[in-house]
Every structure is written in structure tokens, then in C-alpha cells.
């Protein structure tokens, strides 16, 4: 008897199994080639998150179609599977509750889109860039370069702070100057430095005002808006520029100090 005609189970022979393996392998290779070409063709035409979603849909569609088409060769009756699927679904559902929960959360995350690829976020105290939104989990690259996998169920039920969700965001400095210094001059210098920076937005207008008369300094508050993608760079550059410009103009940022009054005049020991 020929080896290929050897029965594995029922009417399924070794040849059938080999055909199925070959078809699935071919489908996987075809899916990889198609998605690779899709990436090449659309990389600079559509957004990265949309491209990722599209390539995943195309990849899994090809693989699933191949699996469905070869199922009859293995003697799998799909209509029977559908009937059995109802019962099996309940059993599998209970057995894999967290898996299903993550899967459903993943689908809702893809529909609701509270975060997109490349966004800067904070989820459950983890801050970083969204690297990938998978069907079961979301991958975050923290600012110090660590790979963090968060199950989608937790992402979906957590408070998400998306730092780049809006096109612009506000940030603030609190700057202390000496009581002897000219407050108006200091505010004018700060306003000039802030307005000169290209990425400090013209509207909404930056604000500079006296916020507090502190123990050791007059506290000036500086509030400004910047494009969400640029705010951190602007924040780093501006504080340095403000300090340098204030110092150039003789305005000092004071150290903590305390004036001490003695009830009796001090006598030097002889």
C-alpha cells in the first residue's frame, strides 16, 4: 500500500493531511507577501494605526479562508461545526473567560479608539508610547525603553490619559523672583521669551501673572499652549531660556531665606 494512501482517520489519508498542510503553508506565505506589499504600497499614504489594522485584517482573512476551504478535506463538516459551536461556545466561554474578555475589550478598543499607535499615554500608572494594539493586549514602550504588555481588559476598564489625544495642550511654570526685583520687568522678559518660541501657540494666548507672594519669593505663573506633539521639547527649552534671560537682566531666582530679629542687641564675646 502506498504511504500516501494510508488512512490517518476515517476517510482522511496522509495525502489529504499533506495537502492541507501545504495549502495552509501557502496561505500563510501568501498572507505575509500580501501584507508586506500592502505595507510598502500604503506606508506613506495612510496612518500607521489604520495600516496595522488593515494588514491584520487581510492577513487573518487569507488564513481563515484557507482553513475553511481545506476543512472538508479533513472531513470537517462546517454546518455540523456551527451546531456544535453553540454548545462548545458556552463551554469555551466559561473556560476562557479572561481570554474572551480581553478579545472583546480589544475589539472595543479598536472601535472606540481612545488611543492610537504612537500616542503618548498613561494607563494604570504606566507611561509611554503605544507601540501596538493587538487583539488581546496593548503594547506600551515606556519612556525608558521598556516593553510593557497590558491585557486589553485592563486597558478598557482603566482611566486612560492620552497626552497626545488633543492637538494642543497647556503647560505651566512657576518661577520665583526676589521681592526687590521689578515684577513688571520680569513679566515682560518672560512674555518676550515665551512669545518668541515658534511652537508656543499664538492662540490660545500665553499668560504670565503673579500667582503668589511666597515666603522667599514672588511667584510668577507662566501658562502656555503648544502642539501636543511638541510640548515636551518646548517645555525643556523654554525654562532654560527664561532663566538665562532673567539672569542677563539682573533678575535673580532667590534661595530660601529667613530674616531673624533678635530681641536684645547682640554682644560680641571678647
Amino acid at each position: 500500500m502506498d504511504l500516501l494512501d494510508l488512512r490517518v482517520y476515517g476517510d482522511v489519508t496522509v495525502a489529504d493531511v499533506l495537502i492541507v498542510v501545504a495549502v495552509i503553508l501557502f496561505a500563510v506565505i501568501l498572507a505575509k507577501v500580501v501584507t508586506l506589499n500592502l505595507r510598502r504600497a500604503l506606508a506613506d499614504k495612510i496612518k500607521r494605526d489604520q495600516l496595522e489594522l488593515l494588514t491584520k485584517i487581510v492577513y487573518w482573512s487569507i488564513v481563515v479562508i484557507a482553513l475553511i476551504s481545506v476543512a472538508p478535506i479533513l472531513g470537517l463538516n462546517l454546518s455540523g461545526l456551527l451546531v456544535a459551536g453553540g454548545v462548545a461556545g458556552i463551554v469555551i466561554g466559561f473556560a476562557s473567560q479572561s481570554v474572551v474578555s480581553n478579545l472583546v475589550s480589544g475589539l472595543f478598543l479598536m472601535i472606540e479608539k481612545p488611543v492610537r499607535l504612537g500616542d503618548q499615554v498613561e494607563i494604570e500608572g504606566i507611561s509611554g508610547f503605544i507601540e501596538d494594539i493587538r487583539i488581546m493586549s496593548t503594547i506600551v514602550r515606556t519612556y525608558d525603553g521598556l516593553y510593557v504588555r497590558i491585557p486589553n481588559e485592563r486597558v478598557f476598564t482603566s482611566n486612560i490619559v492620552n497626552y497626545t489625544g488633543n492637538v494642543a495642550r497647556r503647560f505651566e511654570y512657576r518661577i520665583g523672583i526676589k521681592y526687590n526685583d521689578d515684577v513688571d520687568k520680569a513679566m515682560e522678559i518672560i512674555r518676550e521669551v515665551v512669545e518668541k518660541h515658534p511652537f508656543v501657540l499664538k492662540h490660545p494666548k500665553p499668560d504670565v501673572f503673579v500667582e503668589d507672594l511666597g515666603d522667599n519669593a514672588v511667584i510668577l505663573s507662566v501658562r502656555m499652549w503648544a502642539p501636543a506633539t511638541e510640548w515636551f521639547g518646548v517645555r525643556m527649552e523654554l525654562l532654560r531660556d527664561i532663566k538665562k534671560k532673567l539672569e542677563e537682566n539682573g533678575i535673580e531666582i532667590p534661595f530660601p531665606q529667613r530674616v531673624v530679629w533678635f530681641a536684645n542687641e547682640l554682644e560680641l564675646k571678647k
Binding site: 488633543n166 492637538v167 494642543a168 501657540l201 499664538k202 492662540h203 499652549w225 502642539p227
Partner: peptide, 19 residues
């Protein structure tokens, strides 16, 4: 020319523009 940018609309739905 020194570049400058501004926001047109609100921070959620608006657009950042060259000013």
C-alpha cells in the same frame, strides 16, 4: 521670517496652523 504657530478651533477638534 521667524516661524510661529497657532491653534484654530478648540484643542480637541481644531487644527494647529502656521501663523
Amino acid at each position: 521670517v521667524e516661524p510661529k504657530y497657532t491653534l484654530y478651533g478648540d484643542p480637541k477638534n481644531g487644527v494647529v496652523c502656521r501663523y
